[in-house]
Design a protein around this nucleic acid. Structure first.
Lengths: 179, 179
DNA sequence: CAAAATATGTCAACATAACTGACATATTCG
DNA sequence: CGAATATGTCAGTTATGTTGACATATTTTG
């Protein structure tokens, strides 16, 4: 079927030239983001493994520490996962004494989430190597350069026009999020 | 003097203060990276779904396009997964006509991987929205600022000490292709 | 040349973390 | 009271990774 020296290459004929030569695609940044992020999460991942935890636990512990008292619904909205997905890791974190659940003072249906001292220590232990990595990457940059990085990262984030997202349902599509 | 009110708070008592106030941790960049990367991969993920593909397929298609003719072993080394994991997605991509396998010209045990036209089109379709997002985030930055972003991202990547891997060949130019 | 090493493929079982759907319970609201 | 809401839970599915064992073809080596 394949003929070396065929005159009319079909879509299944192999291409030998690398992609992105003379293309409009910014492959440099695409790949830098891939590798930077992969190495960025490798540090906490190594720590999590010693606890028997995974990325999902990191995300939950992180955001509960960043916003103590947030509700399950708010956490689901931030993580953009389903409550069934959250339930598993949250249960482990609560039973392990990392997170405390308190019935809402006004709406007692709510479960407000607070970190414990143990949970805070874990969040800090996970963030520390990440922050160190950032600091190292920043050593070559002055204050103005660092602000450029912040502006770039903010520009990479979806600017959700408030009003387009109908917050009627709690079970939404999930992505492959990661912290 | 450690605690007003309660006498001796155990590690399981809830904390109300947000983490990272007056801490040495750079939570701003940590979270910006999280959200930026999540949204960054959401674009290709939506496209992949229409093909019945996932992130693993994107990675394989990307690398094969960036370095046509790379071997299975080289791909495994880049992706840092097992051959059993790769086999599943690679089989789908080969059977779908996105990637072509050719026995190595010198070492016929090797299977050199090449993108087909179809595979190249897919790789471009996946990279295009990512590149567009980068371009948008760059609009607020001049050339010097963009170089700062590149320097930052490179600084975030693990600098593998080239001593563990002995590669005495003149090929491994710094900044090799990869997603 | 025969044996060992290498590159790849494959079968099977398992783990994690996401998903959907259905249903239970407690609480608040109209 | 009945409907809506916030949360929890059970059951099954999918995608992607893992380990271990073994097969096959090819190259290298003793």
């Amino acid at each position: 079927m394949s003929n070396p020296g065929a005159t009319n290459p079909p879509v299944t004929e192999p291409l030998c030239a690398p992609i992105g030569e003379g293309n409009e695609i910014d492959f440099e940044i695409i790949e830098l983001l891939f590798f930077a992020y992969r190495d960025f999460i490798s540090d906490p991942d190594a720590i999590l493994e010693t606890y028997g935890f995974g990325r999902a636990h990191h995300r939950v512990v992180h955001f509960v520490n960043r916003e103590p008292g947030l509700t399950v619904a708010a956490l689901l909205d931030t993580l953009k996962i389903t409550k069934q997905s959250l339930a598993r890791v949250l249960k482990q974190l609560v039973e392990g004494g990392y997170i405390h659940q308190v019935a809402g003072p006004e709406d007692r249906r709510q479960r407000k989430l607070y970190p414990t001292r143990k949970g805070r220590d874990l969040a800090l232990a996970l963030a520390r190597p990440q922050s160190r990595r950032i600091a190292e990457a920043f050593t070559a940059l002055d204050t103005a350069d660092r602000q450029s990085v912040v502006r770039f990262l903010k520009g990479m984030i979806d600017h959700e026009t408030p009003g387009t997202v109908d917050s009627g349902k709690t079970e939404g599509a999930g992505g492959e999020a990661a912290i």
